[in-house]
Amino acid sequence: MIVENLRSLGHRIVNTVWRIGYASRFFMLILLYSGTSFRRFHLIIKEIFASGVMSLIIILVAGLFVGMVLGLQGYETLKRYGSESALGSLVALSLVRELGPVLAALLFASRAGSAMTAEIGLMKATEQISAMALMAINPMARLVAPRFWAGVISVPLLTALFSVMGVFGGYMVGVVLIGVDQGSFWSQMQAGVDFRYDIVNGMIKSFVFGVAVTVIALFEGYDAPPTAEGVSGATTRTVVQSSLAILFLDFILTAFMFQGE
């Protein structure tokens, strides 16, 4: 009994390490075949449409509401200390540094990442990938690399749109609805948000999240067992693992970037 449990535990650990190694080789292969896919840029554009443009609605609406909630909650708390004028800097800083990159990447993972996994997994299950390989078309260059670059390009752009919509939502609630002074809202925001320190760091974060989400999604699809059950399991794993990866990477990146002045 104990031996059996130990054996299954060991099997799991070895399997996990095996998959990590396979995923790293997969990532290297994507980078290796990127040149080929950049020469046929229309493939990347098609995938940007599928993952980036189609995610626009959810990103814009979510950003607006997150900004509105921030405006409302921030106002309630700041009012106690008589510093409602700092609302603009509170909304903008929390969006640009943390909420924008993290929430946009989480939404992208569940909206577009899961679709990528299901698509690649189903292609594999119906043997379209083997058929491609038989026709001497490299599936890494034709299928995987364009999707990777589409995701890496889309996520930072979506993050910027999310943050702007959030600032607009905070402005709507704070200035238009509640009546915080418009001048102090914008001037406190501009005084509080530094371009290099806050905005560029937020964009670096979202770039890293984009790489992590798309690599996880594509790898899970490519590695999925070629059955209906296997594809559904891989889709679930994509959402769970990429969400955890985003939050973990966010902690690491924040610790490196914002360690006080």
Binding site: V53, L157, A160, V193, F195
Partner: peptide, 19 residues
């Protein structure tokens, strides 16, 4: 349109939100 909107958002962040 998506790419233009994304870069426009970045510009707004840099000029209107940032310093």
């Amino acid at each position: 349109l998506f790419v233009v909107a994304g870069f426009a958002a970045l510009t707004v962040l840099a000029l209107k939100v940032g310093n």
